[in-house]
């Protein structure tokens, strides 16, 4: 039973949180509002644009006309394309390999399993900086993968967190289902594809969102590996806009940010349930 006083305090808390939320969301408001400002207003410090305009968005795709002759192309569509290619390929590759490895750890007994599992867990602890410089040497000097999609996609296969998450989930799938299939003559791959994958879909969904965010928003690794503008991903591309010489780009930069961010936020909102489940799993089983 909620007392009258209790209801009042819930009301007060709600109001307080809503006010807090408005302040909290202010940077987003700023981003969106700046992206709709005209050049004249960019530096006025106003929050709401007086004459909202889509000119900044237009420039991203059709070039920035300055003066009479000069048209600066941003290659933004390229950045977007690169980000999509890298993210989608990473997701497909990593989810497949993670699921296979997790299947082995969850449902097979094999020699060395415990040791291998622990080795894997330790790799989760390694910070990226520990391997950054040799990785640069490896990818540039030995493999020659600088400026390639491969360089951004392949290293993703070392995903201990994903394997761990899926292993924990697959352990809850009853082994009897597998045994029955085995009697029907199904091999490991068929069992994996027909039984394990369909039943693991929720966990795969969670992992997919996590991976998506990680790859889509990655900054350091593409910064090191990608040196050619046509190969930039969104994060690197937007970061480079700042450094363009002789251009005033606050508006374009925010337009680029809105387009890079809003789809992600919508996606996560749409899949909020799966996302939350993944968070909790991470919290308690780590």
């Amino acid at each position: 039973m909620v007392t009258r006083r209790g209801r009042l305090s819930i009301y007060a808390i709600s109001v307080f949180l809503c006010i807090l939320a408005v302040f909290y969301a202010f940077p987003y408001l700023w981003m969106i509002s700046t992206s709709f400002k005209t050049d004249d207003e960019l530096y006025s410090g106003s929050v709401i644009p007086q004459n909202p305009s889509v000119i900044q968005y237009y420039r991203l795709f059709f070039g920035h006309q300055v003066g009479e002759e000069y048209n600066l192309q941003y290659r933004y569509p390229d950045y977007y394309k690169n980000s999509i290619i890298v993210t989608v390929s990473s997701l497909v590759l990593v989810l497949t390999l993670d699921a296979l490895a997790a299947f082995a750890f969850a449902k097979y007994n094999f020699f060395g399993k415990q040791v291998l599992f622990w080795i894997m867990m330790i790799t989760m602890m390694l910070p990226v900086y520990a391997t950054l410089i040799p990785s640069f040497y490896l990818f540039s000097r030995i493999l020659g993968w600088v400026n390639s999609y491969k360089a951004l996609i392949i290293p993703g296969v070392v995903d201990a967190y994903g394997i761990f998450l899926l292993t924990q989930y697959m352990k809850t799938i009853p082994s009897e289902l597998m045994d029955a299939a085995r009697i029907d003559g199904a091999g490991p791959l068929r069992i994996f594809w027909n039984i394990i994958v369909p039943l693991s879909r929720p966990a795969l969904g969670t992992l997919a969102i996590f991976k998506f965010l990680l790859v889509w928003n990655d900054y350091l690794w593409p910064l090191v590996m990608i040196r050619e503008e046509t190969m930039y991903t969104l994060t690197i591309g937007i970061a480079q806009m700042q450094m363009r010489q002789g251009m005033v780009v606050w508006g374009v930069q925010m337009a680029a940010s809105v387009l890079a961010t809003v789809p992600v936020i919508l996606l996560v909102l749409a899949m909020q349930k799966q996302f939350l489940r993944g968070l909790t799993a991470g919290a308690f089983k780590a």
Partner: peptide, 16 residues
Amino acid sequence: LFFMPSVTSVVVITYI
């Protein structure tokens, strides 16, 4: 709402 920054690229956040 409070979760938005966690799914936003650090590049975007920093520039805002």
